[in-house]
């Protein structure tokens, strides 16, 4: 076993979680574990890399322009919000807030990307409550305002953020509550604030460094994520063993926009490090080697993407200078053995 595999196994506690399909016709064991993330004072770019355990899986029996169906499934007992994962190598994920019937899931038009007999998985979406606790857990809380509070910023999909913190004295109710950090003092039900695992979290830390623990299961297949124009805060998805190569491809198989002898027009991947970011992009004509290379965006040096570890970077920033696009994030190859 590779060292990285051992690390992942240790991280995951060598525990297999059996997942029952909706029809109980098959089950798959999913590795689970925990990860401790640190919140320093100031801006922290984090991501959720251990996910809610799947509650259902199965085989797609029908597809149309706005739904998929598994005739052997029974979704009638499922309530809440879920993440639908299509397990055909496309990495497609979608948020599911309701079901059309016991066997049918509403979707975007997937007819061009999904086929009958493709597999799928459903897992509950993480929420502010499931990750940080109904009482704010290990986050520094405010007292009648944001002063001294760790703030959790969630990308809103339009380039901005929805911002929350836990207030020991919410000024609307005068009791402890999750609160909207927009100045309205509006109480927030943390169970209704979804944290989709492709999204990075920005946590603005206050009051000294602290940590919080994320538990859950490891995703073993690739994930598709949408990039808006501009700054995108994303999760690195895989909790251990992930590199620039495994996530985006040795030869940019994830098809990020590449540069040509420079960063112009290129999507840049920013990896948070102490004091700033290490920045990379794929250059079709690296000016050092004159061949396509992953390249350091600061100095133009060619980079071996397999040596750029993302283990310490649960959150990344992808800077997209072009129009909105969709790209895929892979997982380390040894995840196939887990």
């Amino acid at each position: 076993m590779k060292t990285k595999t051992l690390k992942v196994a240790a991280t995951m506690g060598l525990t297999a979680l059996l997942v029952g399909s909706a029809a109980a016709q098959e089950s798959a064991s999913k590795p689970v574990g925990y990860e401790t993330l640190t919140i320093e004072d100031g801006f922290n770019y984090l991501g959720l890399r251990l996910h809610e355990a799947p509650v259902a899986s199965g085989t797609i029996t029908a597809i149309d322009a706005d739904s998929i169906e598994d005739s052997a499934a029974d979704f009638s007992a499922l309530t809440g919000t879920y993440i639908l994962e299509i397990d055909n190598g496309s990495g497609i994920i979608q948020e599911v807030v309701t079901f059309n019937s016991g066997t049918e899931i509403p979707t975007d038009d997937l007819t061009g990307e999904v086929a009958v007999d493709d597999s799928y998985t459903l897992r509950p979406v993480a929420t502010l409550e499931s990750v940080f606790g109904a009482d704010g857990g290990d986050l520094d809380a405010g007292n009648a305002g944001t002063g001294g509070a760790d703030q959790v910023w969630i990308p809103d999909g339009t380039g901005g953020f929805d911002k929350y913190y836990y207030d020991n004295t919410n000024l609307t109710t005068f009791v402890a509550a999750w609160t909207n950090a927009d100045g309205s003092n509006a109480v927030v039900d943390p169970a209704t604030v979804s944290l989709v695992y492709t999204d990075g979290l920005v946590i603005v830390g206050a009051g000294g460094a602290n940590t919080f623990v994320v538990t859950g299961s490891v995703k073993l297949t690739e994930t598709n994520f949408a990039l808006s124009s501009g700054f995108n805060y994303v999760s690195s998805v895989s909790p251990a063993g992930s590199t620039l190569a495994s996530m985006f491809g040795t030869d940019n198989e994830s098809l990020l926009d590449a540069g040509n002898a420079g960063t112009g027009g290129a999507d840049q991947v920013w990896v948070p490090v102490a004091g700033g970011f290490d920045k990379y992009y794929y250059d079709n004509t690296n000016l050092t080697t004159f061949v396509p290379e992953w390249t350091n965006a600061d100095n133009g040096a060619a980079v071996d993407p397999a040596t750029v570890s993302l283990d310490d970077a649960s959150g990344l920033i992808i800077v997209n200078p072009g129009a909105a696009q969709s790209n895929s994030a892979g997982v380390p190859s040894f995840y196939g053995t887990l």
Binding site: F161, V202, G230, F231, G262, T263, G264, G265, V319, P321
Partner: peptide, 14 residues
């Protein structure tokens, strides 16, 4: 002399 015309990084969301 190689001229590379760069594209400015778009403004950060925050």
């Amino acid at each position: 002399k190689l001229l590379v015309l760069g594209v400015a990084i778009p403004a950060a969301a925050n």
